[in-house]
Each structure stands twice: as C-alpha cells, then as structure tokens.
Nucleic acid binder design. Structure first.
Lengths: 377, 377
DNA sequence: GCAGCTTTGTTCATTTTTTGAACTTATCTG
DNA sequence: CAGATAAGTTCAAAAAATGAACAAAGCTGC
C-alpha cells in the first residue's frame, strides 16, 4: 500500500503530466528533501520513472512520469457483442485482448469476466501482480461511487450493483462508468488532453455523448448526468425524440439521425463519408442534412463554451471525417454563437479513435480511480 | 500562520459545513488522535468552535464549525456609486458599513480603500488583528489568480492588476471577482447552499449572471468565463444583442430587457411587480412578455441541468418576485426541456437578496480564498 | 578551456506530525 | 442500573518532513 504522500504525487502527475522533483515539491507544498525520498521509493517500486531531461541554466531537471508498466488495468466494454476485454498499461497501450459473449445478467457477466481474466493476464508475466483495477464501460447512468448502474436502457437495467458483483467474483477493485465519460477519461490519461485541466469531450457516434473534466478530475454531476448534451433542446418544436421531448440534439446531429435523414431523403448513403462525398459534388439534400447537423452540433458546442468555458473541446469519432462540410459548419456555428470576445479562444479539436475506445476507456476509469481517486480535501 | 492540516480542516468545514471530530478525521484520512490535537489548537486560536451536539447511540458527537468571529473580511462592490464597503464576519454578518466615491482609476480606488479602511475597522475592536482578506466585486472578467481584471466594459478596463495595487496600498490579501461569481460564493459560504457541493447560481438582475460550484469549489472556467449564460443563443435569429450576436438570453429575459419590452409595448410598468400585476389582471402584452422571458430563462436553466447536472439551481434576485407568471413559466420550461427521467430531480430555488449582495459577495470571495484557496492536490 | 554561476537533487541530524492502543466520557437500551 | 456503544483524549513510539549544508550537472563569459 502506498502512503498518502506517494498517492498525492501520483495524483499530481496524473493531473498535470510529467514534472521534475523540484516542481512536484513546490506544487505539493513539500520540501525538496521530502520529495527526494518519496520519488526514490516510488521509482524503486517500479511505479515511477525518470524520463526527459530538461536543460536550462543550472543543473538540468529530470522529469518524473508514471512508469508505463508500473500498473496494469483491465477494461471491458458492454457496448458491443461480443464484449471486448483489454489489458492496458499506464500509457493506454493495449497489451492483450480477449472477448466474451455479452449478457444482460450481471452475475453471468461477472462469471464470464472471472473466467476470461486468466487468459488475458497470461499474456504478460507480471500483469497479475501489478493489476491495479478493472473498469467497465456501459451505456447508461452510473451512481457517484461508480459502483451501481442506476439505469441502462440498452441493458435493461435499473439499480444493478455491477461493480460489487464483479469485485466479489474477481477480487479486483472495480469501477463502472458511462461510455462517454470513459472516453473522456481515456483522453485525459492516455490521449491528447493530458495536460489540460478543464475540458469537455464530445463523443460523436450513433449517439452523442459528452463529459467534462474540471480541475483535472472527471466531473460526473450530481446524479452522474453531467454532459448529457444529446438531449438538450436545440430546435424548439423540432422532431420528436425517443426521450419524449422534441428537437433534441440527438434528433439532428447524431450519426444515426444523419443516416436516417439521408435514408428519408432517398439517398443511398451508408456512411458519413458517402454523404460528405455527395455534398461535395453538389447534392442539395446531402448539403441540407450536413448543414442542419453541423449547425446543431455547433450551437450545442457554443453553449458548452458559454456555460463552462473549457480550455478545450475534443470531439472524438470512430467513423467518418470531420474535415468536410459537417465539421466546417459545426465550427462556424460554434464561433457564431459564442460571445464575440470569446470566439476562437477555445480550441475545438477532433480526434479519430479506433475500435478499442470503449474498452480502453473502461481501463482508463480504473486507472483514473487508482491515480486520482476520491479527492481528499 | 496555520499548519497545512489546520488549513485542510478549515477547507473541509468550508466545503461541507459543521462536522464532528470523528467525521473530520475520517474525511481527512487522519486518526482521531491527530484530529483531537488539531481541533484543540484551532479552538484555542479562536478560529473554530463547538456548536451543536448530536445524540445517537454512544457518546454524543459535537459538531465543529468556523467561529463567526474567528476571521473578518472586507468586501467592496464596484457596481454602485458610491461604492459600498462592508466588514463581514465568517457567517456573512455585516458588522460595519462605509461608502466611498466610485472611480475608474485603479490607483484612486486603492487610495480610497486605504483611507476608508480604518473607519470600517474601528467599529469592532479585534477586527484589525483578525482581518484575513479583502474582496472586490466588479462587472467584467477576472483572471484565474483573481488578481487582474482582464476586461470590464462598465469600468472601461483592460488588464488592470487591481488586486496587486490594493494589496500594496493596504497590506491586505486581496482578491477580485466577477459579480455573479461573488454572489455564488456568498450563497455557498453564508447562504442557502452551504452543504451542497455542486450547484449553479443564476443572478437575475438588470443583466443575467451565473456561476458554478463544482466539488465545493468555485469553478471559474479556463478564462474566468464559466457561467456566462447571458449570451447563450436562446432564440436563433432573435433580436440583436449589444454583444454583437442575436437572440441571446440577455435580450429576452433580463430585467432590463423585460422593462424595455414593456416600454416598447406602451405599458406603464416600472418594475417587474407592476408587470406581474398587469399580467394577473389579463393584460395580453404583459402576459406575452413574461411568457417569453420565462420560457427563455427556463430553457437556459434546462440546458444548465442537462449540461452540468447540478444538485441545485439557485436563482437570486434583488427586485421583483419569482412566484408569479415569470417564475411559473420558467419552471415549466425548465422541466419540459430536460430529459424526462431527470425532470423534477434538480431543485430550483429562488432567493431574494438584499442590497448588500455585492459587497457581501465580495467579502465572501476573500473568505473563500482564505478557507478553500488554491486546492493543493 | 576553465572559473564562477545557477539550479537540481541528495544527505542526515533535528523537529514536527501522526499513529496505535488503552482509556475516559457521555449517552442510549433494556 | 448494568451493559452496550460510540466520541473524544492521552501519551509514548513511530513516521514523515524540514533545514542547512553539500554534491552534481550543465551553462556563461572570458
């Protein structure tokens, strides 16, 4: 077990990226002397390592970073069938993959995980000993302890204490999380938002998800519902949404909605790329659909900026491109709907992610809890 | 100077309200033995005191709370002329009041404050010794160190290091903050949101302001712009706003906008109450205006809930009532535009505040920094 | 090429803080 | 009124952090 200063050090690095001993000491409010010992212990434990050397005036400083192989995490996505399981290191590198059949029965899931784990861990000699957590990504709402699934339409669940069941069956520290939040955490720990303290990730897929980081920590909201932008009203009195309201962002801008609109217009487009291609050669219907979706997404992002003033908006997408009409209109709409003095102040980046996002995201949830955990005051 | 454990204890109580020694020890990760000593020291320093006794099984626990007279703060509002200065205790009680002429020259302001301070402090014997900070509330944007005013249209400022100037002239720890954020902090420390960790305050006045608390801490945003809901687009292609965009919330729902719409409709209403009265006796124009404003405000609040899932929305207002048509429509619109499963989950409270809000809010900014300060990891 | 400067990181005796375990205190329960 | 229960205290022992002096490693300017 780590001491509280050791945990604090990992937390700082987890939130701010690699730092030198002197900087760490300053930002933790400790003396250089204390820092020296703490770092030595963590390095010899194999959790920390020295990376880059920064030259300047005086003795160069050596950055300390998490050792990629200092801890391993298992991530499982319940968004696909078969459900992928991955073994990830501290850098988000996927070391091993397995799959298991998806079930809606929590006990069966836990059983399956327990059965599949040995095969997953077998691929790396020390993975078993250094396994530090297990994360599960699912579609739905999760409570603040990241232990119970309060509601999942996809899985047909209501108040399922999944984390506890898995923890009992496997003996591993387990946390569950909403899919979009898992993606955001993986961008923070492993991706392109490592050194940003406040940002929002918009995950663009069949549905639209979103999650916020505030002060280097995932902000889940009071009922775990922070970031549910898919059902914010973007077209008052617009089309009815499956949620029961009208004009939700989800009805105009999700990949699913875009495809459905294309189908309704009689376009033979099976992907976003097809539609972009049609638009680029002047197909009016394609242009109309992409314009509508882009404007809606841009307006929602503008609201995000106005409401929360994040340091970065990161749009992750599996399919399609974001450099076409959709992306252009989205950016224009976002710029046009923020306070003019803020326009251009908030970078909007897009990031194409691979098919491992959800499983890797799940693993990152375990890593986030290991590193940052419930913030001690 | 306080030790870091003592500061941590104050931070915990500042964020969570009065707690017993045992609970404090658990939430700080310390032993009861350590807690005992820390509490004893802070009590004898006059910063902490025992309040309520909670009876249960076993020995009753005694709640520890900040001693109202353990520290004093000065708050100054630059939103009015003459500018009010108040001396506040740890409970937000105003112990003394002064005013000074408002100036747009930072040096003149600092000079004025330095001149007025002795008069303010003279009213309480130990205020001078226990003075722990000075806060300034102003209309505009403030940097993350709460030291520089990046931009204030009202004061005609751009990059004015006001806190430093005042600190130099008075020798007191000084922080400046945007008016809406100051109100939110005062609701957290002194008002009705003491024990809520995540909430948003919407200040309804001539303009509309908003600020968020996340994890018991003011969330300022990356450029200090979190909460700027006044200029979110609520009526696409609506009326032009002074910010340069169209259809901002500010153009339909602020007190100023409501009054202007009433005037444009030829109504002789000089206050929100007058307009509510007209509406209640069936005046169609009054009803239309209040309905439009209420819908807009409700939609913006719905977005706030969808985006951030706060535990509470607190609407503060100086003038008018919120139990009439405006309030009713606002609540209906808010409910109608959140995910149905969330409807009714987020309490929306209104809170009428007195004329001291801004100055008290300014004082609370100093108190918030004293208590919670820049979070050590 | 070398003396001096600057800044990082280490060492170790001393001081400060925290712990564990036993104990006291205060109330509830039957 | 005797037990049960939980809060808070005490104190010697252990752990952690500090300060000051120092070693290390590279720049700077002659």
């Amino acid at each position: 077990m780590l001491t509280s200063s050791q945990q604090q050090l990992l937390r700082v690095i987890g939130q701010s990226g690699p730092l030198s001993r002197t900087v760490l000491a300053a930002s933790m409010g400790l003396s250089k002397a204390a820092m020296s010992g703490i770092a030595r212990d963590l390095i010899s434990l194999g959790v920390l390592r020295e990376t880059e050397t920064i030259y300047g005036q005086g003795r160069p400083s050596i950055l300390l970073d998490l050792h990629p192989e200092g801890a391993f995490f298992v991530g499982i996505s319940l968004l696909e069938d078969p459900a992928p399981l991955v073994l990830s290191d501290f850098n988000g590198n996927i070391i091993a993959r397995q799959t298991m059949p998806l079930s809606r029965d929590p006990d069966a899931i836990a059983e399956m995980i327990a059965d599949t784990l040995p095969k997953l861990l077998a691929e790396r000699e020390d993975a078993d000993r250094k396994l530090s957590g297990l994360g599960v990504a699912l579609s739905g709402f999760v409570d603040e302890k990241q232990a119970n699934c309060v509601k999942s339409t996809l899985l047909g669940w209501q108040d399922v204490p999944l984390a506890g069941i898995i923890r009992q069956k496997t003996g591993i520290d387990t946390f569950i999380e909403n899919d979009a939040k898992a993606v955001a955490v993986s961008e923070k720990l492993f991706g392109s938002a490592r050194d940003v303290q406040n940002f929002s990730v918009v995950s663009f897929d069949d549905g639209i998800g979103c999650a916020h980081f505030v002060g280097g920590k995932l902000y889940r909201g009071n009922h775990g519902g922070a970031g549910e932008i898919a059902h914010c009203t973007i077209e008052p009195n617009g089309s009815p949404c499956r949620c029961g309201k009208r004009g939700c962002l989800d009805t105009v801008a999700s990949l699913k909605a875009i495809k459905e609109m294309a189908k309704a217009e009689g376009l033979a487009c099976h992907s976003l790329n097809d539609l972009e291609t049609e638009a680029s050669i002047g197909n009016a219907a394609a242009i109309r659909i992409l314009h509508r979706a882009g404007s809606a997404l841009g307006l929602a992002i503008a609201h995000l900026i106005q409401f929360n003033d994040p340091g970065l908006i990161l749009i992750t997408h599996v399919e399609g491109r974001f450099d076409g009409l959709l992306g252009t209109v989205m950016r224009q709409a976002a710029e046009a709907n923020v306070l003019p003095r803020y326009a251009g102040q908030t970078p909007i980046r897009t990031h194409r992610v691979d098919g491992d996002v959800w499983a890797r995201g799940a693993a990152s949830i375990a890593a986030h809890n290991f590193l940052i955990g419930p913030t001690p005051y």
